[in-house]
Design a protein around this nucleic acid. Structure first.
Lengths: 144, 144
DNA sequence: CTTAATTCGGATAAATTTATCCTATTTGTA
DNA sequence: TACAAATAGGATAAATTTATCCGAATTAAG
């Protein structure tokens, strides 16, 4: 579904959100441990999210990553996915045709239509606050 | 969504179906041209589908690939996807957790639930006959 | 001012996926 | 039987994704 990079990006963003919620900045090292991801690779992904202004970073001692409290509920899953994987998951053709629309549909265009729409809506309507609160309350988990 | 291999596999199967419908066996060369895929790579995928008994092959002159007429409507997209990509698209965790179920859900488990179910149902309920007929009647297309 | 803890960024390596090439084998037809 | 047209399959290459390493820059604290 998503690339590894995207999975790490989503999990890292959620972990950062849970901590920003409490006003805590978190380091790359801590993030990688908590979401069980390779540290250096995760660093690249976080840099990418920083460039896309989805998260913020602070260099130097006591530095780390954070999301301004008032922005946590504004960050949608779709932004993270878009930044890392692009929008082809819910925009591109299911069979990889370059042209695929109502006028020139691929064989599974109709079958995929609802699924794509639902996926797109879900990603656009799910924000980091919801996800972070479930982690904080122990309802959901970031590893295993 | 799917790997390139899987996309080629689905398109090839549909093209073979449209021809088997008319009692015509088709060669690798013809298939690759009609679905716009790399020939040698497509050969590997077709071999795989043959091993999974989803399509049949005939060696030698006048050989090629076919699907017994009475089986065309029995081949579901899910079988092709399973043979090539496995079932992780609609079985695995959206964030790649090794354990992810109702008791230990990942942060997006609930959000993905419906989408997975819908995708799974669609793949299991869509057969090659439907798709092939749309191609034959010019309603849908295998390339561009 | 020095040090330690960080992120940043470039280079590189490993793993996987995608793609190509070549030879062997099979098989229908002349 | 010889030939040509196919699939089968192994080896290899190219491209992409995933992952690691290391030095530079930044910054808070002592």
């Amino acid at each position: 579904m998503f690339s590894k990079a995207c999975e790490y990006g989503i999990k890292a963003s959620i972990y950062i959100a849970t901590n920003s919620y409490d006003g805590h900045r978190v380091s790359l090292k801590e993030i990688a441990q908590k979401i069980d991801s390779p540290e250096a690779f995760t660093a690249k992904i976080l840099q990418d999210l920083v460039r896309h202004k989805i998260i913020r970073s602070a260099k130097g001692a006591y530095g780390g990553f954070e999301i301004p409290k008032n922005e946590i509920s504004e960050v949608k899953l779709s932004q993270i996915v878009n930044a890392i994987d692009g929008d082809s998951i819910y925009r591109g053709c299911g069979l990889g045709l370059h042209v695929c629309d109502e006028n020139h549909p691929c064989p599974v265009h109709d079958q995929f239509k609802d699924i794509r729409t639902q996926l797109k809506d879900m990603l656009q309507n799910t924000n980091l606050e919801q996800l972070a609160l479930d982690i904080k309350s122990g309802v959901s988990f970031l590893k295993l």
